[in-house]
Each structure stands twice: as structure tokens, then as C-alpha cells.
């Protein structure tokens, strides 16, 4: 067993627990995970003026910006998710239709100078998918990856069980959990407001923050799906939830917890 822990990646902490006998193999896998996550941290960092994302955000409203192969795939991917989630998952946080992709020249252009891309509800899922590939390539079959509590990848099963059983904590009542999910090669993503962290998810249709006492959890076979789905369900009203979820394949569970707390905050 090997436990690696790092903070300062994508604004949160990363814990990877790998099950296996060969210590050097596990350590090498951890080192590769740290290197790759560090790279993705830079790639999705819109605050670093030298990142490709910063360049896109600065220039794409003036003239089309050429994209690397990876960025081209990511922007196409988030466009598809935007359609699948009825526009509730939106990396522009306002109106993704103002982002124009040109497949012939592999460029991106913003039709409005106010457009800026933010991958807050996507990047951790993307990173988990990359970590899953590193773990698989390293021959590891059992692992639990916790990326900032909100994004979990459970590979295989707990060494003494048939699944990994992970609970979602109640954000307003200490010691209580909302639900426990049984995971086997699943990603568990959680999104919500806490007592100290409110108003961070925006409804792109209304331009208003989700500020209710709401927590959303989803279990999917794909880490990006889980990440995107919870972000969209958090922004959308409960009425659209069924329709959004139905557009995703391989969803084992998706729950919306509308919480009433006795605690006044």
C-alpha cells in the first residue's frame, strides 16, 4: 500500500491510496501522477498569465487563436457537454454560443470580448481520467484517489471488500453523512454549498448564483461525466435534473440533497 498526498494542485489537495506489493512501482506511479497533475494544474490555470488558457482568454475575442491538439479536444468536449446539459454546464459561465471553434484551422474565437473560460467544474474530472490511465498503465488494479473531496476515483475494490464505500458528508451537520455510495471503478463527484463556501456555482441561463443549501452527488463510470453532471445539476433547477441526467450514459447514481439545517449561519 502506498499513500501519496499533495496540496496546492488546482486549488485543493490530492490524496492517492494505491494497493499493491511492489513499493517502487507504486512510488513511480505516484510520481507520474504528481507530474501529470502539476502539468494540468498549469494548463487549466487561468490566473497564470503564461498559460495557454490565459492566452486564449486574452486574445480570442480579438482574433482566432490557434490551439494545441489537447486544447482543441478539451474545447470540443466542453461544447458537447454544454449541449448535453441543456446549457447548464458552461465554461464561459454565461453563454457558450459565443465560443466559435474552427475545425479547419483548429482555432477558437470569441464573438464577445466579455467571454472568459473557467474550467472549475471540469478540470479535476479531466485530471482524474489522466490519473486512471497512469494507474492502469502501471498495472495497479486497486486505488482510491481523492481530489479535494469533491472528485473521487475508486479503482477496483477495497482490499478487504468488494467495493470502496464512500460517504458524502453533511456540510451543515458535523459528523453526519448524507449517503454512502458503493464504488467499483466509479467516479464519485460532489458539488454544493457549505457554510463557509457559498455562491460559487452560477446558473448560466439566469446569471445567478446557486445559493441554496444544496448538495449534488453523482456516480459515473467516467470521471469527467461525473464532474460535469454535478456542476450542471447544481446550476439547474430540480425540474431539469431528470432530462440532464438521461443524456449521460453509465450513471450509477445521481442525487440532489436539498438541505434544511437547524443551524443558523
Amino acid at each position: 500500500m502506498f499513500h501519496g498526498s499533495r496540496t496546492g494542485l488546482m486549488g485543493t489537495g490530492l490524496d492517492v491510496l494505491m494497493i499493491g506489493e511492489e513499493a517502487s512501482l507504486l512510488r513511480t506511479a505516484w510520481e507520474r501522477i504528481v507530474a501529470e497533475t502539476g502539468r494540468l494544474h498549469g494548463m487549466f490555470n487561468r490566473f497564470d498569465p503564461s498559460s495557454e488558457l490565459s492566452l486564449i482568454n486574452r486574445r480570442a475575442a480579438t482574433s482566432p487563436v490557434s490551439l494545441s491538439a489537447e486544447w482543441w479536444d478539451v474545447l470540443r468536449d466542453v461544447g458537447q457537454y454544454h449541449r448535453r446539459t441543456l446549457g447548464y454546464f458552461d465554461v464561459t459561465l454565461r453563454d457558450y454560443r459565443k465560443v466559435r471553434l474552427d475545425g479547419k484551422h483548429r482555432t477558437v474565437f470569441f464573438t464577445d470580448a466579455s467571454v472568459s473560460l473557467d474550467f472549475g467544474g471540469y478540470a479535476k474530472g479531466y485530471a482524474l481520467e489522466k490519473m486512471r490511465k497512469i494507474l492502469t498503465a502501471s498495472g495497479i488494479r486497486q486505488a482510491l484517489v481523492n481530489f479535494g473531496n469533491s472528485s473521487v476515483w475508486a479503482m477496483g475494490a477495497h482490499p478487504h471488500g468488494k467495493t470502496w464505500n464512500i460517504g458524502v458528508v453533511h456540510p451543515f451537520e458535523e459528523g453526519k453523512s448524507l449517503k454512502t455510495y458503493t464504488l467499483f471503478n466509479h467516479s464519485l463527484s460532489t458539488s454544493g454549498n457549505t457554510a463557509t463556501h457559498t455562491r460559487h456555482i452560477i446558473d448560466p441561463h439566469q446569471g445567478t448564483y446557486s445559493c441554496g443549501r444544496k448538495v449534488v452527488a453523482a456516480v459515473c463510470g467516467n470521471c469527467v461525466d461525473a464532474e460535469v453532471l454535478t456542476t450542471a445539476l447544481m446550476a439547474a433547477g430540480d425540474a431539469s435534473a431528470g432530462k440532464i441526467t438521461a443524456a449521460f450514459r453509465d450513471v450509477s447514481a445521481s442525487d440532489i440533497f436539498n438541505l434544511q439545517s437547524n443551524l443558523e449561519i
Binding site: M1, G148, N165, P171, T194, H197
Partner: peptide, 24 residues
């Protein structure tokens, strides 16, 4: 995670709760 490590080391299979909105 520490709880989970402790369980594994003692041969215990149980659930642990830590999932939730992003820890900042």
C-alpha cells in the same frame, strides 16, 4: 484517507465519509 489507511492496515472493511464540496 487516514481512517481508510487505518482500516486497511487492520484488515477492516467499512465505509468512510469524506466526499463533499471541494475542500479549499
Amino acid at each position: 484517507i487516514l481512517q481508510l489507511i487505518n482500516q486497511i492496515e487492520h484488515g477492516i472493511f467499512d465505509h468512510v465519509s469524506f466526499a463533499g464540496p471541494t475542500w479549499v
